[in-house]
């Protein structure tokens, strides 16, 4: 009996270990490590891509997903999570992965439009009837308003939120960084809880009923209004917001190891095809394709958008100044330490 137990154990342990290794031929497997709100998007997209890939190559492809705050996901990939592709919330997080040697530093030029197949922006989600009369960023800085936003240390959306607020303050208060800092500080004073990801914040606001206003990805906000919190919420578009460009990239080292480079590349390119753009638009992401954008123009509020390059000199600078250890965010939200 003992020897039987031992042999079963051996078999099981042998079976358990080489889980990561894959062989090409019968089935390709891709791991897409993505940021928090894209769950529904990639569910649909993966199904469409699998069909496409089967049609093109006759091979079955299975795409596995992992979702979480963009910064956290990037760190997980650096720490060994074997992603074939990363579809994160901002270029900086992909840069972080590139800096660890897993993909080349010029990744952004490898796909069109800075490797951002869709864009989004930051808007406000309020409860039906807008009881606190939230109209613009100023209202978020007022005392007595409870604001929900995720943790910039882990979430990509949270950093876009922060920079959108900062950008508004700069434009409105005469380009003075000190005044902008004060403004953003007052907003964060109103934040009772920082979730690790954008979806976590949505859950806190929608499900747990905490907060008067949620600073959210536009696609999350529309999802909340149309789907998960039907009839209970309204979107308020601020007068000024930031153009958010979530970036995608193949993780070369991992794809080479898994022998999935071709599939991974095609997977990301498929996001730019009309079908890919349609799926993105259907999930409330702003498509890049002009024709698809025209078709779905009505579902997106009209907002004046600025880019991160304009006001912040790009992500590296913004990350360094604001989100690194001891940066401006740490200074204004000391509690998080």
């Amino acid at each position: 009996m003992r020897s039987r137990i031992l042999s079963i154990l051996l078999l099981l342990s042998v079976a358990a270990f080489p889980v990561g290794a894959q062989t090409v031929s019968q089935k390709a497997k891709l791991l897409n490590v993505s940021y928090d709100p894209t769950r529904e998007l990639y569910q649909d997209f993966n199904a469409a891509f699998a069909k496409y890939w089967k049609g093109q190559t006759g091979q079955d492809v299975e795409i596995q997903q992992s979702h979480g705050g963009s910064g956290k996901q990037a760190r997980s990939v650096i720490d060994g999570l074997e992603a074939d592709v990363v579809t994160l919330a901002l270029a900086y997080d992909v840069d972080a992965v590139a800096n660890s040697g897993l993909l080349p530093k010029n990744w952004q030029t490898r796909l069109p439009l800075n490797s951002a197949p869709y864009t989004s922006t930051i808007v406000f989600l309020v409860r039906k009837g807008n009881p606190k009369h939230i109209k613009d960023w100023d209202d978020l800085a007022k005392p007595g308003v409870s604001v929900i936003s995720p943790n910039p240390k882990t979430s990509g959306g949270a950093r876009w939120n922060y920079l959108a607020a900062w950008g508004y303050a700069l434009k409105k208060l005469g380009n003075d960084p000190a005044k902008a800092k004060d403004f953003v500080a007052r907003i964060y004073k109103n934040v009772p809880v920082l979730d690790t990801g954008a979806r976590g914040s949505t859950v806190t606001f929608v499900e747990r009923g905490i907060g008067d206003v949620l600073i959210a990805w536009e696609n999350e906000a529309i999802l909340a209004v149309k789907d998960i919190g039907k009839g209970q919420f309204e979107i308020v578009a601020p007068s000024l917001s930031i153009l958010a460009e979530p970036s995608v990239a193949v993780v070369d080292k991992v794809a080479a190891k898994h022998k999935t480079a071709a599939a991974a590349k095609t997977y990301l390119e498929y996001l730019y095809t009309p079908e890919g753009q349609e799926i993105a638009a259907r999930h409330y992401y702003r498509p890049r394709s002009a024709s698809v954008a025209a078709k779905y123009a009505d579902q997106f509020p009209k907002i004046t958008l600025f880019t991160i390059d304009e006001l912040f000199g790009g992500w590296t600078k913004a990350q360094q100044t604001h989100f690194a250890d001891g940066g401006v965010f740490d200074q204004i939200y000391g509690v998080g330490k």
């Binding site: 979480g68 705050g69 956290k72 760190r75 943790n151 240390k153 882990t154 009772p192 809880v193 920082l194 979730d195 690790t196 806190t204 747990r208 905490i210 509690v335 998080g336």
Partner: peptide
Amino acid sequence: AGNMPLRSEITPLLIMIKLEQF
């Protein structure tokens, strides 16, 4: 739990959050 720092955040969650922040 509300998971709000200083109000309804339990210690294991705080450890988890610090882990997620690396």
